[in-house]
Design a protein around this nucleic acid. Structure first.
Lengths: 200, 200
DNA sequence: AATTTTATACCGAACGTTCGGTTTGTTGTT
DNA sequence: AACAACAAACCGAACGTTCGGTATAAAATT
């Protein structure tokens, strides 16, 4: 892809991760990119088109590739998951940059919610990803039951959901907190809690 | 409070629950309320003032009153919690109204995130509420441990967090789904899963 | 090799529209 | 008469977008 276009995309993603669609103005986009209005409209037909491309980019980069996850034990799996999340978030934060106090003013759910609300066709991205998540977790949990790593009356799906609910829930807590405890620490703590109550 | 002012507040809350701050225009507010601009600015000095009042209203109505919750057993407590959520959500949905297909286009997190992002002073509302939540859950969990209702190596706070993470996580899943399964059903299912793995 | 043509990247003023907000005037109540 | 409650016309600023034009360099023609 063109270098300038990529520059616009990256700069705009920063903005759309911090503000709503309408909050981000064309003025700000061209100022932050260092380009002119004319240059922008040479690469994109509209602000809406740019937004859609960015959301696509965002959803793609958020998709988890489970193929390289260890599947031998649930414990190593969820530890790997937490580490994967740490790296993914770190990349995002690096892109956006954090404020001096270290607090993060970025909320991934915000862009996700607004994108789906504005263009419902993006919902299928989310559903697909969730199905992949469930499948990956169920597979590992099933295996952990068979090997005797864990023991529970709950179904594989129920346990999988529990872990995934925490992924979202912990993040919500993280954004709505003073952010003194890192996301990955809280997530690992939550996972450990679930796990220790499943231990055979 | 004045009837007309309440009418403006209620009508605007509907809008702010479905769209971002900037998406909601003064034009739409006066159209939906059936009033004129002059009438609106008779009751509010600005759109921002209205927004802040609405967010206050939203946070207040979202605050959970735990004083009437049963504290004798964890199971009855979380069942009561789910029922409480059901009623709270039902009230909100009733206020906003649902589309013909029954799907809900309302996202409570959206207004919460945007309000905190726009006016950081609202964050303390969230922190206060979360502390109250934790306290209430910890108390019940502690009691459940003492009576022998549950048995676990996890701390009271860890278990409390688990339940609360699910509250948020299940809701996120609900909005980002086809919404064929109700929120309270999914939440109860999640709570039951946690509980059954804590059972003595 | 020199010259013309064409394509790409970019600029910034200007456009029509919409924004939140104000002013002025009318109606109804006390 | 005074004031609250509203309506309607209006305001300047800001919005996303368009448009005429420039700079540069590669491609085509002579």
């Amino acid at each position: 892809m063109n270098e300038t276009k990529e520059h616009i995309l990256r700069t705009s993603l920063k903005l759309f991760l911090q503000m709503s669609y309408k909050d981000v103005t064309m003025k700000e986009i061209v100022e932050k990119t260092g380009l002119s209005k004319g240059a922008f409209y040479h690469y994109f037909t509209s602000k809406e088109e740019l937004y859609k491309e960015i959301v696509n980019l965002f959803f793609s980069s958020g998709a988890i590739d489970y193929t390289r996850f260890p599947g031998d034990s649930l414990k190593t799996f969820y530890n790997h998951y937490v580490e994967y999340m740490r790296i993914t978030f770190h990349k995002m934060y690096e892109l956006v940059g954090v404020s001096k106090d270290g607090k993060v003013s970025v909320n991934f759910f915000l862009i996700m919610f607004e994108a789906v609300g504005r263009f419902p066709e993006f919902l299928k991205f989310e559903l697909e990803q969730h199905n992949k998540d469930i499948d990956a977790w169920v597979k590992v949990i099933k295996h952990a039951k068979e090997t005797g790593e864990i023991k529970t009356v709950s179904s594989d799906e129920q346990i999988a959901n529990l872990f995934l609910y925490c992924t979202d829930g912990v993040f919500i807590r993280f954004v709505n907190s003073d952010q003194n405890t890192s996301y990955e620490t809280s997530l690992l703590n939550a996972f450990d809690s679930i796990y220790s109550n499943l231990k055979a």
